[in-house]
Simulated assay, not measured.
Amino acid sequence: MSNPWRGEVTLVIDGQACVMRLTLGALAGLEDALAEPSLIALVERFEQSRFSSGDVLALLKAGLRGGNCPVAPDALDHAEIEGGPMAAARAAAELIARAFVVPGA
């Protein structure tokens, strides 16, 4: 079970519930992977719907690393995500939102 106060989001990958989280290290890696100059630019990219499926995949991989999920980030390329691409995009959006917003605020 994920804890939104810690910025956690759960996604079921290949039948296994994985708790993801964007740590500072995961965010730094995501900035590099998406060639964004800052956290603000990264958030704006998603807020303005200027993201691709590759961006969603990179965000989920960062969340897997940050959450120490037993599913290897590279395995996500060929994994079955419960709920399909829409569930993956929703989880990615929740990861970004929870990394920068206090739940209940």
Rank of each mutant, 00 (worst) to 15 (best):
M1Y: 12
M1C: 09
S2A: 14
N3Y: 13
W5E: 05
R6T: 07
E8S: 07
E8A: 05
V9D: 09
V9F: 06
T10M: 14
V12R: 15
I13D: 05
D14L: 06
D14H: 04
Q16N: 12
Q16P: 02
Q16T: 15
A17K: 05
A17T: 00
A17G: 01
C18T: 01
C18M: 09
V19T: 15
V19K: 06
M20R: 01
M20T: 05
L22T: 04
T23R: 05
G25D: 13
A26T: 00
A26G: 02
A26H: 02
L27D: 03
A28R: 15
G29I: 06
G29V: 06
G29Y: 06
E31N: 06
A33K: 10
A35Y: 11
E36K: 14
P37K: 04
S38Q: 03
L39V: 10
L39R: 07
I40A: 14
I40K: 13
I40H: 13
A41R: 12
A41V: 02
V43T: 04
E44W: 03
E44C: 02
R45H: 14
E47S: 08
E47Q: 10
Q48D: 15
Q48V: 05
S49P: 04
S49D: 15
R50G: 10
R50V: 00
R50L: 10
F51M: 01
S52M: 03
S52H: 09
S52C: 08
S53G: 12
G54M: 13
G54D: 15
G54V: 08
D55M: 00
L59Y: 10
L59V: 11
L59I: 05
L60F: 11
L60V: 11
L60W: 10
K61S: 13
G63R: 00
L64H: 04
R65P: 01
G66Q: 01
G67N: 07
N68G: 14
C69V: 06
P70D: 09
V71G: 02
V71H: 06
A72E: 13
P73C: 08
A75T: 12
A75H: 13
L76H: 08
L76R: 04
D77F: 07
H78G: 07
A79V: 07
A79P: 11
I81A: 08
I81L: 14
E82F: 09
E82G: 05
E82D: 15
G84C: 03
M86Q: 14
A87H: 07
A89Q: 11
A89C: 09
R90A: 11
A91I: 01
A92Y: 04
A93W: 02
R98Y: 12
F100Y: 10
F100L: 02
V101E: 11
V101M: 11
V102L: 13
G104Q: 08
